[in-house]
């Protein structure tokens, strides 16, 4: 069961074969998606009609590549804007939460901590509809009270950001808390002894120490936001983020342009993740 315990060769072989199969299973769907991005055909399926880059760069019918496809480009932009906003919000709230739970003992702390974890065990679609219902309640009340239409409380990007933030903030809190817990608080005390006030001490000692976790949480938040579907689906207005656009396209019947978008997503998110690992390794 571990390398130092003798095992029959047969068992060892079966086990290794299983693990290899497991990784093949993980890889195959993605490889298939990537390969068909280069198929010179209207459908992402066999037969193989030859290699082409037209699904990326094509600018004339029948093949219009992503770099000339307005809807997809603009939804990538939308997703990026949403992702960056969610990421900034989550890291900010995650950091204050981490300080709160690590540094303060107060009545109700345990209760608030459990409450803070709850968004992780609420189905995404329920988070979405509850925020949709509540924001409409407020918007309707304002409308009937002051005849004022609050556009931001109607389905749209503002609500999408809030909906995604409502559970991504938990993850950011957990990531940042984990690092803050390991922080040696005597370092801060030393800074205080040397005449720094508390804010300066936190700014010059603790925050730089936390930076890798904050960057990590930011990247994770961005990726989670970028790929979120369930919560977004319920809150989306007329500007669709990428996942929603792709979903609508897939319902209509897919062309290899979806494969091309997917391939770009894979490359993009792998690069981001790699960057995050490098940042974390350096610290």
């Amino acid at each position: 069961m571990i390398p130092s315990i003798p095992q029959s060769r047969f068992v060892r072989f079966i086990y290794t074969a299983y693990v290899v199969l497991f990784f093949v299973y993980l890889a195959v769907p993605l490889i298939v998606v990537a390969i068909f991005a280069f198929n010179d055909s209207q459908f992402p399926s066999l037969p193989w009609e030859g290699f082409t880059l037209a699904w990326f760069f094509g600018d004339a019918r029948p093949i219009i590549g992503i770099f000339h496809e307005r809807t997809i480009l603009s939804s990538i932009l939308t997703s990026t804007i949403v992702g960056v906003s969610v990421s900034i919000l989550s890291v900010a709230v995650g950091t204050t939460n981490a300080f709160l739970f690590n540094r303060y003992q107060f009545p109700g702390r345990g209760f608030l901590y459990v409450l803070m974890l709850l968004p992780l065990v609420v189905p995404g679609i329920v988070l979405g509809i509850s925020i949709l219902v509540f924001s409409s309640t407020i918007a309707n009340a304002v409308w009937s009270g002051f005849s004022l239409e609050l556009e931001t409380l109607r389905p749209g990007l503002g609500l999408v950001v809030l909906g995604q933030f409502s559970f991504i903030a938990t993850i950011a809190t957990l990531v940042i808390s984990a690092r803050l817990q390991k922080f040696d608080q005597t370092l801060e005390d030393a800074a205080l002894n040397l005449g720094a006030d508390r804010l300066t001490a936190v700014r010059t000692i603790t925050l730089p120490y936390l930076a890798p976790a904050m960057i990590g949480a930011g990247v994770v938040a961005f990726l989670m936001s970028f790929e979120n579907f369930n919560t977004t689906l319920m809150l989306v207005g007329s500007d669709a983020p990428l996942t929603i656009t792709m979903f609508d396209r897939m319902k209509e019947g897919s062309t290899p342009i979806l494969n091309a978008v997917s391939l770009l997503l894979m490359v993009g998110s792998s690069l981001l993740a790699l960057m995050m690992i490098l940042v974390q390794r350096r610290s």
């Binding site: 579907f229 996942t243 979806l258 894979m266």
Partner: peptide, 11 residues
């Protein structure tokens, strides 16, 4: 790291 929609599309 890639979207659920890509994974589903693969299948």
């Amino acid at each position: 790291w890639v979207s659920e929609i890509v994974r589903t599309f693969g299948w």
